[in-house]
């Protein structure tokens, strides 16, 4: 019972740092870099992806014994594409401005490696509850990562955070809004996360030693 609880907890927390989809697994970078131009867009994209991830994990886990192994990939893609279409329709109807801002990256959630990766690596092998926790944990990890990128880029490029001005625009580095800025920021964060992982590894080694 205790093992089951701890494995549920680890399924939920794995995506935060240890297996963070962006900073640790380096998955789904294209939409992450393209839509993290500001905090609002990043949050919208993160939540949309998290919604699709949770729903597709639940659905795929529920159908895992029904779907024949040979056709599992097209079946997973169909399920994921349906949820992306649903998110797209809902955003068009209820969050028009965000839907326009995020543009073609909403339909492109279908081919986000994070979602397909979790479907194949986790949801197809685990129960509904654990798959839900995995989707939620990985989704939160992705939201955190993309939001961190979006906030950093918005602050550095135009000097605002969620549209609230922090310092004069003159001090902004416009390049942070552009693709080179995206690569620069994610490169620095990847290095930071790698450093944290190395320090933790070294500490563990010292404790064992």
């Amino acid at each position: 019972m205790k093992t089951n609880e701890s494995s549920s907890l680890s399924a939920f927390t794995a995506g935060f740092i240890k297996q963070n989809p962006t900073f640790s697994q380096v998955l789904g970078l294209c939409p992450t870099l393209a839509t993290s131009t500001n905090a609002e867009n990043a949050l919208g994209m993160g939540l949309a992806t998290m919604g699709v991830l949770i729903l597709s994990n639940i659905f795929i886990s529920a159908l895992r014994k029904l779907i024949p192994n040979e056709v599992r990939i097209p079946a997973y893609i169909s399920v994921i594409a349906s949820f992306v279409t649903i998110v797209n329709l809902l955003m068009h109807g209820y969050t028009y401005q965000l839907w326009t801002n995020l543009g073609l990256y909403i339909p492109l959630i279908v081919v986000n490696c994070i979602i397909m990766g979790r479907a194949e690596a986790f949801a197809s092998k685990n129960g509904i509850w654990k798959s839900f926790l995995d989707g939620l944990g990985m989704g939160l990890g992705f939201v955190g990562a993309i939001l961190l990128l979006g906030m950093t880029r918005e602050v550095l490029s135009v000097g605002t955070l969620f549209g609230i001005r922090l310092w004069p625009k003159t001090y902004g580095m416009f390049v942070m809004m552009l693709p080179p800025g995206a690569f620069l920021v994610i490169g620095l964060y990847l290095a930071l996360f790698k450093h944290i992982a190395n320090v933790r590894k070294r500490n563990l080694k010292n404790i064992k030693g």
Partner: peptide
């Protein structure tokens, strides 16, 4: 009024 297929941060800044 519709630039939903343009790249965020680049073409999508048109409006």
């Amino acid at each position: 009024i519709d630039y939903s297929n343009e790249t965020p941060g680049l073409g999508a800044r048109i409006n």
